[in-house]
Simulated scan of single mutants.
Amino acid sequence: MSRVVVTGRIPEAALEKLRAEHEVDAWTGQDSIDRDELLRRVAGADAIVSLLTERIDGELLDAAGPQLRVVANVAVGYDNIDVPACRERDVVATNTPGVLTEATADIAFGLILMATRRLGEGERLIRSGTAWKWGMFFLLGSSLQGKTLGVVGMGGIGQATARRAKAFGMEVVYQSRSEIDPAVAEELGARRVELDELLSVSDVVSLHCPYGPATHHLIGAEQLAAMKESAYLVNTARGPIIDEEALAAALRAGLIAGAGLDVYEHEPRVHPDLLDLDNVALVPHLGSATVETRTAMATLAADNAIAVLARQEPPTPIR
């Protein structure tokens, strides 16, 4: 039996799969595992099933030892994994694309509605006990019908978000490294544009691109200034794609109308200037947070680890 280290709590269904064939050492603490404890536990591991809260780098791979075969990340994003370091050591790295597409698109569109219809402000008002009265100009928001959604990163989640936008009567433009399937583009009525044009024409900008050096602070002061004053920015991808300090300044100055964030630049810390603003909706990284999705993610990660340990091709390797 091979030894599998699981770096955080995952659904029991995935653990049962792993335990059926291998020895499993799973962290069960409520908080993330301490780095020193993680380095100690991975020693001698044949497989690591990792969460996005753990940094998988050369130090950790060396701590595991030369017998390590696979790192199976329970996430579609893998900015927490040093993939070149894995390749240098002949360690297969995998992720979990596809299974969280619809759940994350739901959150993206939920944030769009929260921001444009000021739902967070309304709930805070009710919970505060502040007196209120219906009126023609009370908490006016912005409608979506006939407006333009700009999707940055038109992969599976971006396309799923665009489908929701289409159902709400929105037009869709997108910026992506490559053209999407022509049939999908026709279905969505989506037009590919450069980022500058997307920012200038969109009423809502939704970020779905992967995070890396090329997308660090992709949205900063210059890009926010290029958006419409009536526009909204939504991020369900990775926090550092946005310069949070620049975003807070833009929201405070009225350069854009509002924002909705599920992820943060220095997660779990949120830039303090954002916390004082009513025109930003903030939720704590809930993109994949359904029972069904998290179970599917963990099970796919387990399948990836089991396949590599059996000297088979994993379902979803990182290319």
Rank of each mutant, 00 (worst) to 15 (best):
D34K: 10
D46Q: 14
E54P: 07
D46G: 01
V49L: 15
L39A: 10
A47I: 09
D62E: 15
L60T: 01
N80S: 08
P84E: 07
D62S: 15
D36T: 15
T53Q: 13
L68E: 05
A26W: 00
I33S: 02
I48D: 03
D25V: 13
D62C: 06
R69K: 15
D31N: 15
G58L: 12
L39G: 09
R55L: 12
L52W: 09
Q67H: 12
A63N: 09
D25A: 12
Q67C: 00
T53S: 15
L68T: 02
Q30D: 14
P84M: 07
D62N: 10
R41M: 04
V76Y: 12
S50H: 11
V24H: 09
V24N: 13
A72G: 14
R69D: 03
V70M: 11
G44L: 00
S50L: 06
R69L: 14
R40Q: 10
V24D: 11
L68Y: 08
R35H: 03
T28L: 08
G29E: 10
R55D: 10
A45S: 10
V76T: 15
D34N: 15
R69N: 04
E37C: 02
V83S: 07
Q67V: 10
Q67I: 01
D31C: 00
A45P: 04
T28E: 14
S50R: 01
A47K: 14
Y78G: 07
E23I: 07
V76H: 08
A63M: 09
A26V: 02
G29S: 04
S32R: 15
A26C: 10
V74S: 11
A43M: 00
E23V: 13
L61C: 05
R35G: 06
V49W: 08
V74N: 13
R41C: 02
T53D: 06
G44N: 03
D79Y: 08
A63T: 01
L38E: 04
E54I: 04
N80C: 07
G65N: 04
R55I: 12
D79T: 10
S32F: 12
E23S: 15
V74G: 02
E23M: 09
E54H: 15
